[in-house]
Amino acid sequence: MNRATFPHFWLPLLLIAPQLAISAIFFYWPAVQALYQSVLREDPFGLRSTFVGLANFRNVLADPAYLNAAQVTVVFSLLTAGFSMAIALLLAVQAEKVVRGRGFYRTLMIWPYAVAPAIAGMLWLFMFNPSFGTLAAIPRALGIRWDPLLNSSQAMGLVVAAASWKQISYNFLFFVAGLQAIPKSLIEASAIDGAGPVRRFWTIVFPLLAPTTFFLLVVNTVYALFDTFGIIHAVTSGGPGKSTETLVYKVYNDGFVNLLLGSSAAQSVMLMVLVICLTAFQFKYIERKVHYG
């Protein structure tokens, strides 16, 4: 569509200037700095720096701690996305069935969205605190020596639980919207052909829900990668050992606590590449969705 426009020249530049200025100062300049620093080696006091080419990247990739963080991130993201999406889908399907009380259920289901990730982590820590958490009695009753702050797999379990819990609301709302968009006539047609409820779900509903599922997969991955920093920082600080240290937590820790500027910058650049790939993937998929209607 050819849009009719105002003839002004300076006004639009003035209108767009604030956003461009903020983007330049707080987004582009730091990003360029990260790129620049990633090829330098700087002493911790920032007095001297030398050009070292890709040495920082080589060092990072050869560092067992980085590979550990990468592995932790993959495990954490898969578990978080898997649990929160599976639970949300199960609940959304049930919510589609009921007529009475649907609004009531939704109201309760959206609470966690409003809770900051860091606080979500603290809530789970309170409940499962080995010394005063009421729910710590459950793993103990199962014969587990429960101490999530000293045992790595228990620590991972706790942060995954908090991260998935927080994301259930979001996934639930999107799955409900996705389910409502599926034409009832298709489901009825398959019922006439004799398909039972389970069969109808797996052959009709689930495939038609695929766009929503893919979209949520990307969003949940981005969430697990970046937004969960608060949970990790507030609950485990990457510990015990380095068993819950994710890539983002490591960038923060190496840059701010250990002052390894070159290494932190190289890690930032690699994360940037990751985000660019994920965003590109997401937009490619959205375009396809538009095409099919």
Binding site: Q19, L20, S23, I25, F26, F27, Y28, W29, P30, A31, Q33, A34, Q37, L225, F226, F229, V248, V251, Y252, G255, F256, L261, S264, A265, S268, V269, L271, M272, V275, I276, T279
Partner: peptide, 19 residues
């Protein structure tokens, strides 16, 4: 403006802090 989508705070922590 669009590209800033790909530059979340988490990937440029230190330089942004310096700014």
């Amino acid at each position: 403006i669009f590209i800033t989508l790909m530059l979340p705070v988490e990937v440029r922590i230190l330089p942004t802090y310096k700014v």
